[in-house]
Amino acid sequence: TDVTFHVNGRNLHLKGADEELLRRIEELIRRGADIEELEKAVKEWEK
């Protein structure tokens, strides 16, 4: 799945995201995470 999140005026584009990653990103956004936290979560998922 390709999806782009718009967070605090910045874009986080995910290519090939699975349901697990999407749920994790949505949860972080609900908690008020900043873009750096979201990018870190994506990097951890990519490993």
Rank of each mutant, 00 (worst) to 15 (best):
T1I: 15
T1E: 08
T1W: 14
T1D: 07
D2K: 04
D2S: 05
D2I: 08
D2H: 05
D2P: 02
D2N: 06
V3H: 14
V3I: 12
V3C: 14
T4S: 09
T4R: 04
T4V: 13
F5V: 14
F5W: 02
F5N: 06
F5P: 03
F5D: 05
H6F: 09
H6W: 12
H6D: 10
H6M: 10
V7G: 01
V7D: 03
N8D: 07
N8A: 05
N8T: 02
N8V: 01
N8Q: 06
N8I: 01
N8L: 04
G9N: 03
G9L: 02
G9D: 05
R10Q: 14
R10I: 12
N11M: 15
N11L: 15
N11H: 15
N11P: 15
L12V: 02
L12Q: 00
L12C: 01
L12A: 00
H13C: 07
H13Q: 06
H13M: 09
H13V: 15
H13Y: 13
H13N: 05
L14D: 00
L14S: 00
L14I: 14
L14V: 13
L14T: 01
L14H: 00
K15G: 02
K15I: 09
K15S: 06
K15R: 12
K15N: 05
K15A: 04
K15P: 03
K15F: 09
K15W: 07
K15Y: 08
G16F: 06
G16Q: 08
G16S: 08
G16A: 07
G16H: 08
G16D: 08
A17D: 04
A17Q: 02
A17G: 04
A17H: 04
D18H: 10
D18P: 14
D18A: 11
D18M: 04
E19V: 13
E19A: 15
E19N: 12
E19C: 10
E19F: 13
E19I: 13
E20Y: 15
E20G: 14
E20F: 15
E20I: 13
E20C: 13
E20K: 14
L21K: 02
L21E: 01
L21W: 03
L21S: 02
L21F: 07
L21V: 08
L21C: 04
L22A: 02
L22I: 15
L22N: 01
L22R: 05
L22P: 00
L22S: 02
R23F: 10
R23I: 07
R23M: 08
R23V: 07
R23Q: 07
R23P: 01
R24Y: 11
R24A: 08
R24H: 12
I25L: 10
I25A: 02
E26G: 12
E26K: 15
E26I: 15
E27T: 14
E27W: 15
E27R: 13
E27A: 14
L28P: 00
L28V: 01
L28N: 01
L28R: 04
L28F: 08
L28M: 14
I29A: 03
I29R: 02
I29G: 01
R30I: 09
R30L: 09
R30Y: 10
R30A: 10
R31C: 09
R31H: 10
R31S: 09
R31G: 10
R31K: 10
R31Y: 10
R31A: 09
R31D: 08
R31I: 07
G32S: 04
G32M: 04
G32K: 05
G32H: 04
G32V: 02
G32T: 02
A33V: 07
A33P: 02
A33H: 09
A33M: 10
A33N: 06
D34C: 06
D34F: 08
D34M: 08
D34S: 07
D34Q: 09
D34H: 07
I35E: 01
I35G: 01
I35F: 14
I35Y: 15
E36F: 08
E36N: 08
E36C: 06
E36S: 06
E36P: 12
E36T: 07
E37P: 02
E37N: 06
E37L: 09
E37R: 10
L38G: 00
L38F: 03
L38T: 01
E39L: 14
K40V: 12
K40Y: 12
K40M: 12
K40T: 11
K40D: 13
A41D: 04
A41S: 07
A41N: 07
A41L: 10
A41K: 07
V42S: 03
V42E: 01
V42H: 03
V42Y: 03
V42C: 04
K43E: 11
K43D: 10
K43A: 13
K43N: 10
E44I: 13
E44H: 11
E44Q: 11
W45Y: 13
W45S: 06
W45C: 03
W45A: 05
W45E: 03
W45K: 03
W45V: 04
W45L: 03
E46W: 10
E46I: 13
E46T: 14
E46P: 12
E46L: 11
E46K: 14
E46G: 13
K47S: 09
K47E: 10
K47F: 13
